[in-house]
């Protein structure tokens, strides 16, 4: 199971890097999604490692997916409005909020 754990760690760091370094809002959203996916991968691995198989992490991942879908929806709506506002002000404001 170690490869999965390593993969989860790599994905998490990748997500962090993307969040901090990418400027475009869509890339930031994707980075956040990669981040949460890494956590879900870890949880599923944990479930598989348990003896006997543990259903609780699956329940958590399911809930987590619902949460992530909602957050992504909010993020997309927010990014769209931000872009519209940026156009409205003649693109003077930087849309990445930094």
């Amino acid at each position: 199971m170690t490869p999965y754990l390593v993969l989860a760690a790599v994905l998490f760091v990748l997500g962090l890097h993307g969040l901090f370094v990418c400027r475009h809002p869509l890339r930031k959203i994707l980075a956040l999604n990669v981040l949460t996916t890494a956590v879900f991968l870890l949880l599923v691995t944990v479930a598989r490692l348990a003896e006997p198989l543990d259903p609780v992490p699956h329940a958590m991942v399911l809930t987590g997916i619902v949460v992530t879908v909602s957050t992504t929806a909010v993020a997309l709506a927010l990014a769209a409005r931000l872009a519209a506002f940026g156009r409205g002000t003649g693109g003077k404001r930087r849309t990445d909020g930094s």
Binding site: L16, H17, L19, F20, V21, D96, S98
Partner: peptide, 11 residues
């Protein structure tokens, strides 16, 4: 401190 790359480093 408010810039994202700097935030990454502080984190």
């Amino acid at each position: 401190l408010h810039r994202w790359p700097v935030v990454g480093r502080t984190v």
